[in-house]
Simulated assay, not measured.
Amino acid sequence: MFLIDKEKNEAISISKKTFQELEFKERKHLQEWISKNTDILGERLLIIQKEFSGFDDTKERLDLLALDESGNLVIIENKLDDSGRDVVWQALKYASYCSSLTKNDIKDIFQKYLDAQGEKEHSEKLICDFLETEDFSEIELNSDDQRIIMIAANFRKEVTSTAMWLLDHNIKIKCIKVTPYELNGQVLLDTEQIIPIVDAEDYLIKIANKKQEELINREKKQTRHTIRVEFWTQLLQEMNEKSDLFKNISPSKDNWIGCGSGYSGLAYNFVITSNYARIELWINKGAQEDNKEIFDSIYKFKGEIESSFGDQLDWQRRDDGKGSRIAYWLRDVNVFNEEDWPEMINFLTSNMVKFEIAMKKVLRSVFKK
């Protein structure tokens, strides 16, 4: 750092110091500076507790606990000249401890802090003022993931590497480098956000969010696949006791399984989703006009088919689509709710047996074989 002497038109070096050289202490000095002016951390925060130790079955203390402008809890860990190896682990532990704090917990923690400081204010009012909301009942606190800010003069490589990995996995973490300087008996403090780099912060957060979303989607997809395979396994066991129609079909990870009808381009399908279950005859022989012609030929026997089946069917010619469908539905069931499985399996298997019987004679007439 340099001081510019305008009269001499020169840059004068300012001596870089360590906190130890200046006899500054972590709790007595750096912690107090931050609590009185959170601009040191590059943002507006409301400090709600120092040396917070309100964790069950542990005597550990986090340095500073704060709220940001979104009502999220911010865990602040201060170190002086060296971050040490364990600061990330400490901060993560404290974040996990704080994850269970309720809105009332936070209000009470802040009130104890105000009382200890000799302040006459009420915590609810100060939180409302900080979040620019009139009614405390309308405020949400700690509803999102907790954030972590670490401050030190120097960060070890194992700390910065871990912080970058956590940031990449959507953990909200910052590393602030603080450097003291001395000039003519005056102490200057320089701060620099090193993780994430300020100019790239928005980009890195977007990339991390995208990766997290992709990870969640992959996990959901894998879970969905596992559930569907189990559902189809149970369904096929019951179906094969009632009919040989699906005897050569294996369980699938997809939301449908089908078998041939004995006629090219026509398949009997089971379909399951989080909203319904369906049996169908799917018509997709080739050209669109051929499919519509087959559908129309079957539709001429609508009354006979529904009489044999015992209920009305859903006749979907689908004029704008290539294929056509004749279906029967069960609404308001969810394959991802195992409690719905018995109803769904019974509906699908029982009605598919009746459906295939009702269609068999008609298909023989339509295709003349």
Rank of each mutant, 00 (worst) to 15 (best):
M239I: 04
E134I: 08
I197G: 06
N248E: 12
T102P: 07
D290M: 00
E32G: 01
Q146C: 10
G286C: 07
K120F: 13
N269G: 03
E304L: 13
E69N: 08
P180C: 08
C98D: 06
V333S: 00
M164W: 09
G54Y: 07
F24C: 02
A66V: 09
S350E: 15
D144H: 08
K221M: 09
A91V: 03
V335W: 00
F110H: 12
E121A: 14
K247H: 06
K360D: 12
Q237Y: 11
R228M: 11
A358I: 03
M239W: 03
W329E: 06
E51A: 09
L114Q: 11
E60K: 15
L188A: 03
S324Y: 00
F2G: 02
A208P: 11
D320T: 15
K247C: 07
S365P: 00
R27L: 13
K247I: 11
I148H: 04
E21D: 14
Q222W: 04
K93C: 09
D82L: 04
I207E: 14
S35W: 05
K25P: 04
S161A: 12
Q111Y: 13
H122T: 14
V159D: 00
C175T: 08
S99V: 07
F110I: 10
D254Y: 13
E238F: 00
L313F: 08
D145Q: 15
R147H: 11
R228T: 06
L183F: 14
K300E: 11
T179H: 09
Q234R: 10
I326W: 01
M150H: 03
S15L: 12
M1E: 06
F110Y: 15
G185D: 08
L183D: 12
V88L: 12
D290E: 14
V366N: 00
F246Y: 11
A200V: 11
T162V: 10
V335Q: 01
N217W: 06
I357D: 10
E51M: 07
L41T: 01
A208F: 10
T223E: 12
I176P: 00
I294A: 00
G260F: 14
L131P: 01
S53P: 02
E121N: 13
S264G: 02
N334Y: 02
K302V: 06
K253D: 12
D129E: 15
K206W: 03
R218N: 05
L330I: 13
N142F: 08
A287S: 15
D135R: 10
S123Y: 07
R317Y: 04
M352A: 12
G262D: 10
D314Q: 10
D319P: 08
E51L: 05
D135I: 10
K360R: 08
L204T: 05
K120S: 14
L348V: 11
W315M: 12
Q234V: 04
L167P: 04
E192A: 09
E304K: 14
Y328W: 09
R325C: 15
L188Q: 05
C98T: 15
E214C: 01
D244N: 15
S252H: 11
D296M: 01
K361N: 08
F367N: 01
Y276V: 02
D314K: 10
N291V: 02
Y328A: 09
V87A: 04
C259P: 10
W33H: 05
G42C: 04
N346T: 15
D135W: 09
I151T: 14
K285E: 06
K112L: 12
K8F: 13
F367Y: 06
K220V: 07
F136Y: 13
L131D: 04
K292G: 01
K368G: 02
A153C: 09
V74N: 03
